[in-house]
Write a protein that binds this DNA or RNA. Structure first.
Lengths: 213, 213
DNA sequence: TCGAGAGTCGTCACTTAATGCCAAGGTGGC
DNA sequence: GCCACCTTGGCATTAAGTGACGACTCTCGA
């Protein structure tokens, strides 16, 4: 079981590097942050940083990805007989503490990176990559829901549109938080669930959201 | 009026470089293509290439962007009293020759780059950037249509979802063309217009597509 | 318990993408 | 022709990213 163990270690190290890199990006800007500085902040050699990340900007990916991971896990558990609205309220509400255990600081950091992506084209890539991942996951989820292959053009359209509105909502909320909005207000589960479910239903022309048989 | 003149020249040079770069990317791969080779193919110095493009991959942007420019111009001319379906059929049909005058070779090249973006993460950025531009334009168009500010969260959702389905359709068609489909068949105006209009209407929950008063 | 094998990390040398700087040349207005 | 302005090329330089090798650690099997 070496592979399993090392995979966990690898993920943890990547997250560690990502945290420090994101912090530096936020405080002194992307261009002004060198690979050497990231390595030094984490306490590893520069070579190790490049071993785990293909580029400087991609160092932000794990942190950003973690921001959407919770939502994706919840969506993967979406049972056929339940509406999206109900499912999101239930799961996001029940798992609230689990979500918090993902570390509030990381969530804030992720929002900062998304914010930075507005002005730093280098970081925009990381954010768009994360959204791309979301879209891929949604491809599977929606394909399964509609009982169609993920390659199906309509499934792809729905997945793309859904991922897009999820992204917009994420950017919106992130901006609000960074502008000083109360975290608890933003994290208001039922409101967030409603808005998300409604956005996805609308973006798919009503094809995704209802219970199926 | 030096400035205006130089802007045209600048755009033409960028496109020229972009063409050569895209050709090289397609034939020998992105990693195997150096900035020096691009410069040599165009007939300018390496320094000039870096003066006009911030990175190697971004050299593909103008070609990719040109692929969506026609559609965006048409959408900007969309009058209130007409349905999207009708408008697209009319404009894309009438302007068919203009579209062709944008150089068929460029359109093919753009499709190749989009295809390459599937496997080359470096190029993916260029494609996503082009889609980002599309979304931004749609923000203005849809905001104007709905008589709401472009900042409005619902306008943003609709624009994002629309841009997403346009992207999916573009990828789909590009893949079909490169797989050997007939260009004329793909360029079948009414079919394309219908599919596009339907996709946008669906992605916006029916809020964008009808005539408005 | 010991050693083989696999995996990861650090150091050093190296390639190449990308920027700053300055001098040369071309263009338009006077 | 001369001056102001912009673009280009060449050179030096920084920083991103890779390859190669030796040292260290962990685990498995004898």
């Amino acid at each position: 079981m070496k592979g399993g163990m090392s995979e966990q270690r690898r993920a943890r190290l990547r997250l560690e590097i990502s945290r420090e890199a994101s912090r530096l990006f936020w405080t002194r800007g992307v261009a002004a942050t060198s690979g050497d500085q990231i390595a030094e902040a984490v306490g590893v050699s520069t070579r190790t940083v490049w071993r785990h990340f293909r580029s400087k900007e991609s160092c932000a990916e794990p942190v950003v990805m973690q921001g959407v991971a919770t939502l994706l896990r919840v969506l993967h558990r979406w049972p056929r007989h339940r509406s999206l609205d109900d499912h999101l309220s239930l799961e996001l509400g029940g798992r609230r503490h689990e979500a918090r255990s993902v570390d509030l600081a990381d969530e804030l950091l992720a929002m900062k990176m998304i914010r930075l992506a507005d002005t730093e084209p280098a970081l925009r890539t990381a954010w768009l990559m994360a959204c791309d991942q979301t879209e891929h996951q949604l491809l599977l989820i929606i394909g399964d829901r509609l009982r169609r292959p993920p390659r199906d053009i309509e499934v792809r359209r729905h997945a793309a549109a859904s991922a897009a509105v999820v992204r917009v909502l994420g950017e919106h909320i992130g901006a609000a938080v960074l502008a000083g909005a109360d975290l608890d207000e933003v994290h208001d589960v039922t409101s967030f669930s409603r808005r998300l479910a409604h956005a996805i239903r609308t973006a798919t022309g009503g094809h995704v959201g209802d219970p199926t048989l």
